[in-house]
Simulated assay, not measured.
Amino acid sequence: MRYSVLGPSGMRVSKVCLGTATFGVAPTAEDADGVVGSALELGVNFFDTANVYGSTPTFDRPGAPPASQRESAEEILGRALEGHRDAVVLATKCGERRFDPDAGLSRRYIVGQVEQSLRRLRTDRIDVYYAHFPDPDTPLEQTLAVYDDLIRQGKLRHVALSNYPAWQVTEALWIADDRRLVSTPVAAQVKYSLLDRSPETELSAACTRFGVSLVPYAPLHGGLLASLSVLERQTAGDARFGGPGFAPHEIAVARQVERLAREWGLALHQVSLAWLLSRPAVASVIVGAETAEEVRANASAADVDLTTEQLDALSALAADPPV
């Protein structure tokens, strides 16, 4: 496993981060220990979760226990990491309103959610705490101020932003500097892959300029850049969360990537992740592995070095990032 420094935090994080959005469904709570254990054995030290992951209806699948009967992803991850807490960088989030109309990034909500996440994760501190989505009802100054208070209390180590546009990331950095806050945002989490290059329009440049790390989620685009066999599954891509399936042009590009990977003696998922890890400001990619075998396969990508010619060939397949 290879490692990167996460923004200005000084923390070394594995280039592959284990995401837990579907913990409790795939893997089940019973199988999650094996998935987390495999990640630790392979040198993965970066784990990503959120206060709404796993136990909400969006993650329902045929044959899985209903949301009301599932533990949250935070509870499952906290139990799986017992005995390893000091060896890992643990990230979680709050602020997604799809499941809780009272959610947001106000002082009242953040303080309550941090306490609940600490309990569920069985820890006394959170290494990276993301604002999950922008909150138009709460001034960014208030959100950053409460984060600063929680850092001073020792409950948070660093703060970060998820799904924020470049201008708001820049504004957050300006506020933190102007008010001399303890910690400026160290990372920006965003959906980013060879098939979704929208962060390259502005966010990537802003993060590179200001030393903020990009941490992409969905780096394999719902599994399409892992294996074309995913097309046979009903839960492929955003369909896992009630969204659309894959577009024809996405499937066409994935087939071309697979062809190149085969020519180079590599797997589709390896070249897809290695390309993303080569992009400016990208420190680590979040993979939603559902089995120990998938963890091992994805972790192998961190050791793949693509040539400049190979990287250019992959970039040319989807040369125009959508606005």
Rank of each mutant, 00 (worst) to 15 (best):
H132V: 11
A166V: 08
S183D: 03
I175L: 15
Y129W: 15
W174R: 14
E96V: 09
P139H: 03
V146P: 00
D137G: 00
R120Q: 14
Y147P: 04
H158A: 06
R119T: 07
L181E: 10
F99Y: 13
F99V: 01
A131V: 10
Q153N: 09
W174S: 08
R157I: 04
H158Q: 03
Q142T: 15
A188I: 08
R197G: 03
R157M: 06
V159E: 04
D102H: 13
L105C: 10
A187E: 05
T184W: 04
L140G: 03
E115V: 02
R122Y: 08
A103Y: 11
V169Q: 10
Q116Y: 09
Q168M: 15
Y129I: 10
A187I: 06
F133M: 15
D177L: 12
T123R: 15
E96P: 02
L144C: 03
S193H: 09
V169E: 15
L105G: 07
L140S: 02
W167Y: 06
T143W: 00
R152I: 12
D127Y: 06
V128Y: 11
D100Q: 04
E96M: 15
Y164P: 03
Q168L: 13
R179E: 13
D127F: 05
R97E: 14
V169H: 12
T143Q: 02
L195V: 08
V186R: 02
I126Y: 01
G104H: 01
G112Y: 13
W174F: 14
E171G: 01
Y147E: 04
R98F: 04
T143D: 00
D149R: 06
R120W: 05
Y164M: 07
P165W: 07
R125N: 13
Y129Q: 07
R120Y: 13
Q142H: 14
D178R: 15
A176K: 01
V190H: 00
D127E: 08
R179I: 06
L105P: 00
E115M: 13
A166F: 06
N163T: 02
A176V: 01
D137L: 09
I126T: 06
G154L: 14
R157K: 07
Q168W: 01
P165G: 03
Q153H: 14
R180S: 15
A187V: 09
E115F: 02
D196M: 09
K191L: 07
F99S: 12
V182G: 03
V114F: 04
R107V: 01
G154Y: 15
Q153E: 12
Q189L: 01
H158R: 13
R119F: 07
D196I: 05
G154S: 06
N163E: 14
L121C: 08
L156P: 08
S193Q: 05
G112C: 09
F99E: 13
A176E: 05
R119Q: 02
L161Y: 06
R120M: 02
D137E: 12
E115W: 08
Y147R: 05
F133R: 14
F99H: 10
P134K: 04
Y192D: 08
R157L: 08
R119M: 05
D178W: 07
D178T: 14
A187D: 13
P136F: 00
A160C: 08
R122L: 12
Y130A: 12
